[in-house]
Design a protein around this nucleic acid. Sequence first.
DNA 1: GCCGTTTTCGGCCCGACTGTTTTCAGTCG
Length: 578
Amino acid sequence: MSRNDEIATELEAFADLLEAKGVEYKPRAYRRAAENIREYPGAIEGLAADGTDAVGEIDGVGDAISAKVVEYVETGEIGELAELRAELPVDMAALTAVEGVGPKTVGKLYDALGITTLDELEAAAEAGDIQDVKGFGAKTEQNILDNIDFAREAHERALLGEARPYGEEIRDYLAGVDTVDRCALGGSIRRWKPTIGDVDVLVGSDDETAVVDAFTDWEGTDRVIEAGETKASVRAGGVRVDLRVVVPEEFGAALQYFTGSKAHNVAVRNRAIERDLKVNEYGVFDIEGIEDDDQRAGRLVASETEEAVYEALGMEWMPPELREDRGEVAAAAAGELPALLAEGDIRGDLHTHSDWSDGGYSVAEMVAGATEFGHDYIAISDHATGPGMVGGVGVPDDELWDELDEIEAVAADAEIDVFAGVEANIAPDGSISVDDDLLAALDIVVASPHAALDGDGTDRLVAAAKHPHVDVIGHPTGRFLNRRPGLDVDIERLASVAADHGTALEVNASPSRLDLSGSAVKQAIEAGATVVIDTDAHGPGEFEQIRYGVHTARRGWAEPDDVLNTQSADAIREFIHD
DNA sequence: GCCGTTTTCGGCCCGACTGTTTTCAGTCG
């Protein structure tokens, strides 16, 4: 857990405990602050050192929360949180992991039965004690028993690269059902978030019940969590899948609502309120002078398409990747949305591996694969020796000279441009452990961190970006999704140095990395840096993963001109020539 | 606790589903 994650988790614990006590509004404020701190690309610790004003620059963080963040960084504890924990000494995260159990339920069960852990919860349910508590009954008790084992397994979020193909399978099944008119993935999959909590599917149909039935009857369904008239949730293959069915005329409004993010929808609805409009999953309604609080009350302004919904609010339609409440609502209202990069804009891959290091295919096979994929050029950039290269993966300098000869020989016969490269390692002190003569002889040098991947890495990466032979900083933070958070990096400072020295910052498209992240890409571009989207492919089958990098860059508002490998091979040559 | 293109005070997104309730609270997204 990175330090930012750690602070965010503390604030979320604060929110849960306040909610358990029945406090209103504050929990939402703490959660919003926690989310923005978790997404913040730099090190909060650094801001905390500059005082509460610096921390308060983060959206949703005011005087009270910034003081608590500083207190936590300085003392390792938030006093008020410790008091709340003493009042309600429960394993909140474990207990609320049980489907249907939230903070208020945890609070009630602690007051009535003294339950603090999952084991105690299970024992109380088995003994039949829970149904005797006011507000609880036999069904609630049984649901807890049914869900407790699932909660015990630590469920990490699925990687986009795994969940997306799986979601498409479910979508295709539903699209084949007779009564289904329109069908789409929603939620975080549609926004291309790096990790996915659940799969959201939206269907437009005039026969809602038939669609819900088809969904719960799907062969992949392991257990039905709930099934109503218009929505249902199932557990399938360890993932939660949520279905929502609407009439075709309301598909656009539902898709907008169902795509999120939650923060984006809140911003959109607030904009609606300012205009005496109401937005929900059924449409945009003009409610001026209307007292009726029915969901479809008022004059219907838009509902059939997303474009119409946004237009009704005076906004341009925007790609789902932008819907994270990072300024897209104001930009759409001003007609100043970015013209985002598209998958088809990518013309080559500048970070790939062959069997000279840990790839599974020869240089010639990688070049042939890139040609078949449709690229105009490819760089072969095998691992050099150095920090993090264990088990003989890294290629020593004298062998890299031999590989250079082979790449040039393959290039001579290739239909596409082939660049001879290397992926060098950035040591903790920022140095590059490959001989300068070799670096100078190669076309392109990707330099990446592979060891000592914790703490603040800004100085280390800045030093590498200044190196005269380094062209690309590969997977800058070194994060591995669900496994390690990687380096904390002041992206603005790194990007500014990179821009000055003609060094590109990579968006590594590997589904387990997606590094830089979308929010970091946004900061990097705003600071003037060029980004490059690479697959880090270890075989020709991985070239298609470039799409995950493209959509990650789109999450960072990247336009074609911001991205090095939307350009021609000649333009690449010019960029890396120095 | 946060925030402001009416506000430095008075609001705070909206709805489905479930279970336990005779009208609502909690959870979830």
